[in-house]
């Protein structure tokens, strides 16, 4: 399996295989994105996105669309910038000191990467699920009710109860927890905790769910449950998922984007990309020559 410790992309991340090392030094002009980055009627459109951590240039000139009701998988070796890219879309990089994001992220004809745009409604529209399940140290009910409460989405307790139930049902957790909503969320198993976090994100009724390696801390059975859930959720939400597992990307996503050292190397329909990769680096990666 692949390691998942490197959360932040660094362009000088070491490659494991000799082949990769040679390829990593291919000149810039050979690193143009292969495949169609654009879709019709996109939910999110990124133009010339660059991210810097202090002096380090983490991702370069990314152009990429996220379509409506699709699952877009972001794959690539550790430190390739896929998590950084994901965190641009709901401006979570704002919370990292020294991080600078340049370029446009267009949502509903508005560039949400401009400082005037308030992150509060943006993040409400783009729910996020993190690498490690991070339920709050509160009851299961309060975890799910957190978003609706702070945003004032419900008028009364009955409505709130309904939102909590709906979210838990959609997250496939309701049957397991309906008897013990008042117990701490931290007492659940890892997979249940992650589904609780998904329910917490759903409760705000976002348009997009951003998932940052949501299964990397889970066992295979819990992973399978979450993957099935993603396919279900696709009917109501747009999902953008970062994953280390090519198998996972192949199983759940419609489109796949392959990142390498801060560059977007190739984008395409998932089936296409895994069967006929258009770029040598993509082929090397999916055939396991480096990782």
């Amino acid at each position: 399996m692949y390691e998942s410790e490197a959360k932040l992309a660094e362009p000088n991340a070491t490659m494991r295989s000799g082949v990769g090392n040679v390829r990593a030094t291919v000149p810039r002009e050979h690193r143009q994105t292969v495949g169609n980055t654009r879709v019709d009627n996109p939910r999110i459109r990124c133009n010339k996105l660059n991210v810097y951590y202090g002096d380090t240039h983490a991702i370069h000139d990314i152009n990429l669309d996220v379509g409506n009701n699709e699952i877009l998988a972001l794959i690539g070796p550790s430190g390739c910038g896929k998590t950084t890219f994901l965190r641009c879309m709901n401006r979570m990089n704002d919370t990292i000191p020294g991080c600078r994001v340049e370029g446009e992220i267009i949502v509903d004809k508005q560039n949400v990467n401009s400082p005037e745009v308030d992150v509060v409604p943006l993040r409400a529209r783009m729910g996020m699920v993190f690498q490690k399940p991070n339920p709050f140290p509160k009851s299961i009910y309060e975890n799910v009710a957190f978003g609706p409460r702070i945003h004032g989405l419900t008028a009364n307790k009955a409505e709130l109860d309904e939102v909590v139930e709906t979210s838990l049902v959609k997250a496939g957790l309701w049957d397991e927890v309906k008897e013990r909503l008042d117990q701490p969320g931290t007492g659940l198993s890892g997979g249940q905790q992650q589904r609780l976090c998904i329910a917490r994100a759903i409760a705000v009724q976002p348009e997009v769910i951003l998932m940052d390696e949501p299964c990397s801390a889970l066992d295979p059975i819990a992973t399978a449950v979450i993957e099935n859930l993603m396919v279900e959720l696709r009917q109501n939400f747009t999902i953008c998922i970062v994953t280390h597992s090519m198998q996972q990307a192949a199983r759940v996503s419609n489109r796949t984007a392959f990142f390498h050292l801060g560059d977007l190397i190739e984008v395409g329909e998932t089936n296409e990309l895994f069967i006929r990769p258009g770029h040598q680096l993509t082929e090397d990666y999916i055939t396991g020559r480096f990782g």
Binding site: V120, I150, H151, L153, T154, A155, E159, T166, K170, Q205
Partner: peptide
Amino acid sequence: METGTFPTQGGRKPLGIIQAGLAKRK
């Protein structure tokens, strides 16, 4: 209860509610 629908205040869109409450939260 029918799964897949969320109740909202008077049928308003969540984004509208959030935008309306923004000034107070700021």
